[in-house]
Nucleic acid binder design. Sequence first.
DNA 1: CGACTGAGTTCGGATTCCGAACTAAGGTCC
DNA 2: GGACCTTAGTTCGGAATCCGAACTCAGTCG
Lengths: 166, 166
Amino acid sequence: MRDSAPDCSIARALEIIGDRWTILILRDAFRGIRRFDEFRRDLDIARPVLADRLRKLVDHGILQKVRYQDHPPRDEYRLTPMGRELSPALVALMRWGDTYLNDGAPPTVLIHDACGAALEQGFWCPQCRRTFSPRQIASRPGPGTSPDGRSDPTDSAHGGQRAHTH
Amino acid sequence: MRDSAPDCSIARALEIIGDRWTILILRDAFRGIRRFDEFRRDLDIARPVLADRLRKLVDHGILQKVRYQDHPPRDEYRLTPMGRELSPALVALMRWGDTYLNDGAPPTVLIHDACGAALEQGFWCPQCRRTFSPRQIASRPGPGTSPDGRSDPTDSAHGGQRAHTH
DNA sequence: CGACTGAGTTCGGATTCCGAACTAAGGTCC
DNA sequence: GGACCTTAGTTCGGAATCCGAACTCAGTCG
C-alpha cells in the first residue's frame, strides 16, 4: 500500500493484520497454539513467512515472546491483551463463514456455560436494552468520508441507527 | 494457499476476502461507494486489481452488479445480503483499530438514533439478557481442532463461557 | 466529427511471496 | 564423544502477484 498512514482504522488495522497468514496465525493463537513449529505444522506455512509474520505481530504488540524453558532456551508466542481484543473480528469472520460457506454443516456456536443458551454476537443498545442484527445496521457502519450521506436504497428495512464520530 | 477446502470457516472466509484490497473495497461498499471509478479513486488502486477483486466478489455472491442506467449501460456494485452480513467483522476491525492504532484520536462510535446511546458490539446471552465483553470470551472463540483443551493461563479472568460445536 | 466518460483489458517491469535447503544451539542416547 | 534429534530460525532463487501506463470499447455531448 502506498499510503502508510491512512486515516481509516480499518486500513490501519489491515496494514498490520491484513494478510491471510497473519489472520490464520491469530486464529491458531486463539486456539491455544503458541510455538513456532506448532504454527508451522498446523498451518503448513513456509518457515520464512511464519518467522516474518510472528516478528511483525510481536513488533506491533499483538503477540509477545515468553520464555517457557531455559535449558534449551525456548520462547513461545502468546496473545497480548491487544491481541485478545481481536477476537470479535475473528469470531465475526467465523460466523460469517459458518453461515455462508459451510455447505450445510452445522455452524459453530458459542454456548454460555452459565445457562446453556447460544450467545449471539451483535450490536447492543445499553439504554434500550436490546440487540440489533447486523442486517439492521449494516448499511452505515461508520461515518467514513462519504461526503454526501447519499442514502442506500437497500437500506429501507433497517431500524434507524446511524453512525457518528464521537 | 495450497489447501483449497479447509475445514475451518475462518480459512474459507479468508480465501474469499482475505486480501487487503478486498476488505478495503468492502469497507468502501459499506460507506456507499458503488461504481468502478469511485472505488478506484477512493482507494487509489490499480484498475486491473480492482476489476479482478470486484469480479471475485460478484462471483462469490458478496456484491452484485446492478444496472443503474440504460443509456450508456452502466452497472454498479452493491452489497448482497451475504455481503452485508460481513459488517460485524468490519466493525470489529474498525473498533480494534480505533482502540489500538488511533494515536489518541477519538474513536468512531455507533449511535442508536432512537435513543442516542452508543451501541456496543459484543456477545449477548438472550436468556440471561446481558452482554459479555470480548475480553471475557476472548480465550476460547471456538472449539477449533486443538485436541487437548489445554487451558490458557491468561484465561483466569474470564467469565465462564465456552464454545461448543452445535 | 471529435472529445469525453465510465468501465474495463493488455502488457511488461518491479515487488513480494514462498518453498527447499541450510544454519545454529542445545539436548539425548548409547 | 559422536550420531542424531528438536526447535527456531535465515538464505536464496524461482514463481506469483502487483501495479502503472497505455490501449480498447461503447455510448454521449457539443
